[in-house]
Design a binder for these strands. Structure first.
Lengths: 224, 224
DNA sequence: GCCGTTCGTTATAAGTTGTAACGCTCGTAA
DNA sequence: TTACGAGCGTTACAACTTATAACGAACGGC
């Protein structure tokens, strides 16, 4: 940030108002979901009239896209910080769960129901790749590398998504299951599907995590 | 009136129009997502004007609720049929994936991002319980019952959701992981998060399924 | 101090959900 | 067969929404 002195007052004001708009949008999404986000409501809450917001965001989609990008950025930073604290993937997993529970709608903004026509801009995919990299790093540490499964050989030939990462196919496989299993528990918990069941989702999450970390030593017999 | 074994013409017409409305709604949701569902658009497509639909559905929420209920019913029937074909949970899993891929938005209508304020009516929870029962049945078949994990003991004390099902805590645990792991792969696939990665989601799904079925014999050493 | 960019405003268009009031139609019952 | 009434579809309206256009005012760089 060496060149912040070149910021004109106009630019400073603009970025501040944009931040304030996003703040209200976040609050609104957290309480009523992304589908209920209303530019008009935000404007009224900020003391100005509807069309004024279009000076700052091209439209509803533009605002939501930036919120998605911020969410990705926040998750990437959180996981990166957790991974930096040590080589144990447990820290990463618990950081992920904590981040998700902190604001469920923010997690669902990334991993929830997508709009069929929508395509994420490049910024987002870049951060998603960064996320994948920290996950691969964490999964590279602890692994005895058991026998090769059919999926492993397939991933060896389709590692486009981890092109520049020096990870074995088994690590790719491990990272994917790490992702999908934790997301499986987490998304169902956040969506409220465990609500009436009575058990503690944290224990299910912990059990899945332990299974992920201990299961590597003795892979399943590949009969088929 | 007392013995209306045959419905009146009015009732027949009514149910037919309701079905036609739902048909258009399904199509619309499948292509543009549930958030883009418009009663007005449906009405125009059916050749009648907006408010006419309110004779058949109290509102947008009412229509969506019935679509959710239908989706649950369809999934429950599909899984029940698959489970009836044999004791192998593989059939159930592949039936689930096939059902989801057949209409992704329908799957996401059930398991996708929920609206914070919304509470599902009793019909839905009843079908959800039915779903859980067939899953528990399928998981009861093949299981060597390894050592008891912390989650197992917790589930033994919190089996409210499977009160009338004679399943061991290990089976409850197995059913939950069956659900969460398959949903983890499936939901990420349907949401398009595997899109740019290049590998085949079907293989990841199959690998998770095989791991679920073979991992039971040698449970992880519970160190901690 | 001027002048132009930027901002916020009101007005407007085209949508949406949902209610109200008015006829028409059709089935039922006498 | 006729008459009645429930149900259906209509238009009109209210209260929203997103989004654009045009106007005026304020603010900052020069």
């Amino acid at each position: 940030m060496a060149e912040t002195d070149t910021e004109t007052p106009r630019e400073r004001y603009r970025t501040q108002v944009r931040a304030e708009i996003k703040e209200h949008a976040r609050e609104q999404i957290a309480t009523a979901g992304a589908s209920a986000l209303s530019l008009n409501a935000i404007a009224k809450r900020m003391g100005l009239s509807g069309p004024a917001l279009y000076r700052y965001y091209a439209g509803r989609d533009d605002l939501i896209t930036e919120l998605v990008e911020d969410a990705y950025r926040s998750l990437a930073d959180t996981l990166h910080a957790a991974a930096a604290s040590g080589p144990d993937p447990r820290a990463l997993a618990h950081a992920m769960r904590g981040w998700a529970l902190e604001d469920p709608q923010r997690y669902l903004l990334i991993y929830g129901t997508p709009v069929p026509g929508y395509h994420a801009p490049d910024h987002v995919t870049v951060i998603a790749n960064e996320l994948m990299t920290t996950l691969l790093d964490a999964c590279s540490a602890t692994l005895p590398d058991g026998p090769v499964t059919p999926l492993d050989t397939h991933l060896a030939n389709h590692r486009h998504w981890a092109a520049d990462h020096p990870a074995s196919p088994a690590v790719l496989h491990r990272a994917l299951t790490f992702w999908t299993r934790l997301h499986g528990v987490l998304s169902l918990e956040l969506a409220g599907h465990f609500a009436g069941m009575g058990f503690d989702p944290a224990l299910l999450f912990a059990a899945e995590l332990e299974d992920l970390l201990t299961d590597g030593g003795d892979p399943p017999t590949d009969h088929r």
